[in-house]
């Protein structure tokens, strides 16, 4: 891998993958990944389909634990605690509280708008109505959705538009005050206007949380991210500040990909 950027230049780190390998059964999907995630910055993962970017993203909230036969090897450190979140003794539920995730297609629960956001809080044991109201409103405001749904909190989440549903999912993830947010192609099912509002939201969120985003849309990575990692065949080929990646990448494979050439 080519690292054009040193960890020192990135300021505080929120997380860091160290010699991370991941296996779906026999198949090795991630090969020796070393990548630093800067705190309160947006890091984008780009690369062709099947390059391992979503697999990598899912490692951050232990999504792979849900299926048997998957195996992690190596570390993902979370700072400032300095814990390896892949360690068997770490509770994946706790990890998911601290590291929220938003998926490609909006996937609200078949519940009301309110209950979608309150869900994670109830799991955390918060049942005081006033406290719940407060937190739900804060999360919905954080996801730039409050003004649109404040009068329909009791209606079913499915009645919202696609873009609103996606922001609801962001609000749901925000409700538990995560330190880090993972976005897996958050706008690929949305129209350009909804996409722009999600991008704007992501840009605002970085004031509070560290963001890791997987996107197929390179212009999106160029627009929103501070750092970009180009992945190919389960490896991080190049990692640098976004500006460098999109104007003067060091690796031929990166250049070929972002300029639309045969790899």
């Amino acid at each position: 891998m080519s690292e054009n950027i040193t960890a020192n230049a990135m300021g505080l780190l929120k997380s860091e993958a160290k010699s991370l390998n991941f296996y779906y059964g026999e198949y090795q999907a991630l090969k020796n990944i070393n990548l630093a995630v800067a705190e309160k910055r947006i890091t984008a993962l780009i690369g062709p389909s099947g390059c391992g970017k979503s697999t990598f993203l899912r490692c951050f909230n232990r999504m792979h634990d849900l299926y048997p036969g998957n195996r992690y090897d190596g570390e993902i450190m979370l700072y400032p605690d300095d814990v390896n979140i892949l360690h068997a003794k770490i509770d994946p539920i706790e990890v998911r509280m601290r590291i929220g995730m938003v998926f490609q297609k909006p996937n609200p629960f078949p519940k009301t708008v309110y209950e979608n956001v309150a869900y994670g809080l109830r799991v955390r044991g918060i049942s005081n109505r006033r406290k719940l109201d407060e937190k739900v409103e804060k999360a919905l405001r954080g996801a730039a959705l409050w003004n649109e749904v404040k009068d329909r909190l009791t209606s079913l989440a499915f009645n919202l538009s696609g873009g609103q549903q996606q922001r609801l999912c962001i609000a749901r993830a925000l409700a538990t005050d995560p330190e880090m947010m993972l976005f897996d192609e958050p706008t690929s099912a949305l129209d350009p206007i909804a996409t722009a509002s999600i991008e704007e939201l992501i840009a605002q969120l970085k004031e509070q949380v560290t963001i890791l985003i997987v996107t197929h849309n390179m212009q999106q990575a160029a627009r929103v991210s501070d750092y970009t990692a180009f992945m190919h065949m389960g490896e991080v080929v190049e990692f640098s500040d976004t500006n460098t990646i999109f104007t003067n990448p060091a690796q031929k494979r990166t250049e070929d990909y972002i300029t639309g050439r045969y790899g």
Binding site: Q219, F246, T254
Partner: peptide
């Protein structure tokens, strides 16, 4: 085309 990298340059 939104050229990038070498194409942009």
């Amino acid at each position: 085309r939104q050229p990038a990298a070498g194409d942009l340059r």
